[in-house]
Simulated assay, not measured.
Amino acid sequence: MRILITGSNGQLGSELQDILKDNTNYECYFLNRKQLPLDQTAIIQDILGTYQPNVIIHTAAYTAVDKAEAEQELANKINYLATEEIAQYCRLNETKLLAISTDYVFDGNSSVALREDATVDPLNVYGLTKWKGEQAILKWYPEAIIIRTSWVYSTYGTNFVKTMLRLMSEQEGISVINDQIGSPTYAYDLAQIIVYIIDSGKWIAGIYHYSNEGQISWYDFAVAIRDIQRLNCQIDAISTSAYPTAAKRPAYSLLDKSKIKNTFGIEISDWRSSLERMLIKLKS
């Protein structure tokens, strides 16, 4: 089986490389943004055709949430139009598609964990373009699996955990938002689930939610990072209004994982245990 992974240099793509690179059951192609330039939509299907994959794992995206407010056309091209090209290719060539989406498709007004059928109403350009990408997949290739995830971090790339570690080592005190609620996702855990789904041969199309278990704020996340690492840094809790950004964020985007757990028979790690594993790996 030939598997093609987009966004190979991203957090999730890098974790998938680590898991799949020595897997002799699959012939894997890991494409970065130069090998598959998603902003050049006219050539995407031709590039995919040279690899003739049986499965595409589409992790690549425009993820600069604040920057997207000023680069709407580029974000739309990468997250929506390029995804549409990939979905069309999969339909024409009977290629399975597993694509990654985001909790940012929601408006954050819920008070309970969000199910896959919850009302979608993005607050920012990034969320809107990812939702349009979802719609394109459902239109052209409804046999696809879409996994929405949240607060992704990894030993690879730039993310909240690594930023907090840097700031805590440089400053005596920092301020972190405490009124945005969700749950982090260790990219390695999500990569393992993706490979498990492919290994199982149990392909059940639809939208699924995945993050690590638990409910926390960004402030809680930062405190846990500090405490696990035994750092000496004062962390003050602040409201979203005290830290304005170009793009609005959902205040509550906790994902209900019941569907993916029940459908594929998986267990999901608690956010803190996954964070501890990531921090150990980061030191090694």
Rank of each mutant, 00 (worst) to 15 (best):
S241K: 12
A242E: 15
S239A: 14
N212I: 09
Y219P: 03
Q215W: 00
R230S: 13
A191G: 04
D189L: 02
I235S: 08
C233N: 04
R226P: 01
Y188T: 01
S200K: 14
R230M: 09
I194W: 05
A246K: 12
D236G: 13
I235T: 07
A237G: 02
I228Q: 08
R230C: 04
I198S: 09
R226L: 01
I235A: 09
E213W: 01
I228L: 15
G206A: 04
K248G: 05
T245H: 10
Y208P: 01
I235L: 08
W218H: 14
I238L: 10
Q234W: 03
I225G: 02
Y186K: 10
Y186P: 09
Y219L: 08
A242D: 14
I228S: 03
W218G: 02
K248V: 04
D189H: 13
V223A: 05
C233Y: 07
R230E: 11
E213H: 03
S200R: 14
D227N: 14
R226F: 01
S217K: 06
P244R: 11
A191D: 00
D236H: 09
S239D: 07
T245K: 15
G214D: 04
A191L: 08
V195N: 03
I193H: 08
S217D: 03
I193S: 04
D189V: 04
I198D: 11
S241D: 15
I197P: 03
Y210E: 01
N232G: 00
F221L: 13
Y219C: 06
T245V: 07
P244L: 11
A187P: 06
G214N: 08
A237S: 14
Q234T: 09
I216R: 04
T245D: 01
A237C: 02
K202R: 15
T240F: 12
N212D: 13
W218S: 08
I225N: 02
D199Y: 15
A205K: 10
P244S: 10
I216F: 10
S217L: 07
W203L: 12
H209L: 09
G206R: 01
D227T: 11
S217W: 11
I194F: 03
A222G: 05
Y208R: 03
I198F: 11
G214H: 10
T240N: 12
I193D: 08
R249Y: 07
L190M: 12
A242Y: 00
I238C: 14
A246H: 07
W218A: 02
Q215C: 11
V195Y: 13
A191K: 10
Q234F: 08
Y186F: 15
R226T: 00
K202E: 05
I235M: 09
A247W: 06
Y196G: 07
I197A: 05
A191S: 12
I207H: 06
D220H: 13
N232Y: 08
D199P: 10
L231A: 09
I228E: 06
D199M: 14
I204D: 13
S211C: 14
Q229W: 00
Y208I: 01
Y208E: 02
Y188P: 00
N232M: 05
S239P: 00
S217V: 07
I225K: 05
